[in-house]
């Protein structure tokens, strides 16, 4: 987190207890937190000042959470973290399709929440946001040098595979949707089928995973995309 200005977070949730808990968790970790209990007051708060991140619960008393997410996305670029409950998998997926950046299933621990928020803010932080080298359990990804090694041995990746891996590593622990991946690797004007991306991901796994048949780094998020598991 940059030393100068603390990050601002807007929490939109209709449950007072959740708002209070999130406020406490985030404030004790140095964030500045504002809270809104419904869609209307969230929009009012957003017209006054723009936060660095929005935490949005999908069930709101006055409007549909997915609709709100879509409206916010039309004029805001800040990351949106969606809170969902287990039963609304379909809602979660449509929120991610309409512009949310990641999701967290209730109930969650303080640790999970903070890790998600940090991962989302890292991407948007200006300047030194890119991790130059990722290292875990014998896998080393040096983005600047375009070099990947597994247990010391160099791994040769195709440009597309390296592109996918670098997007995933830069967004470590964050959800990367299929369309985000397609935009980042092939370019926004290119419409690449998920099936095609899957083939490249499958090849990438064979090269970098310790046991490629059961991935532990490049995990699949059903119906949505991928998540690079760095922890």
């Amino acid at each position: 987190m940059p030393a100068g200005r603390p990050d601002h977070v807007l929490v939109i949730d209709d449950e007072a207890q959740i708002r209070r808990a999130l406020t406490t968790i985030l404030e004790t970790r140095g964030y500045v937190v504002a809270a809104a209990e419904d869609g209307a007051s969230a929009i009012a708060a957003l017209t006054e000042s723009t936060p660095d991140l929005i935490v949005l619960d999908l069930t709101l008393p006055d409007m549909d959470g997915i609709e709100l997410c879509e409206r916010l996305r039309s004029w805001l670029t800040v990351p949106i973290l969606v809170l969902s409950v287990r039963a609304d998998e379909a809602d979660k997926i449509s929120a991610l399709e309409t512009g949310a950046d990641d999701y967290l299933t209730k109930p969650f621990s303080a640790g999970e929440l903070v890790a998600r928020i940090r991962a989302l803010l890292r991407r948007t932080a200006p300047g030194s946001s890119v991790i130059p080298v990722f290292e875990a359990d014998g896998l080393v990804v040096d983005l600047a040098a375009h070099r990947v090694t597994r247990d010391g041995a160099e791994v040769s990746l195709t440009p597309i595979e390296f592109g996918i891996l670098s997007v995933l590593v830069q967004n470590a622990d964050r959800l990367v949707t299929w369309s985000q991946l397609s935009d980042a690797v092939w370019g926004p004007e290119c419409l690449v089928e998920v099936r095609t991306i899957r083939v490249h991901v499958s090849n990438l796994r064979k090269k970098i995973e310790p046991y490629p048949q059961v991935p532990r780094y490049v995990l699949t998020e059903p119906g949505v995309g991928l998540r690079f598991n760095a922890s």
Partner: peptide
């Protein structure tokens, strides 16, 4: 949905 066995096991 299309997926490989390992993806579901890993998940």
């Amino acid at each position: 949905d299309d997926f490989e066995v390992g993806e579901v096991v890993g998940w």
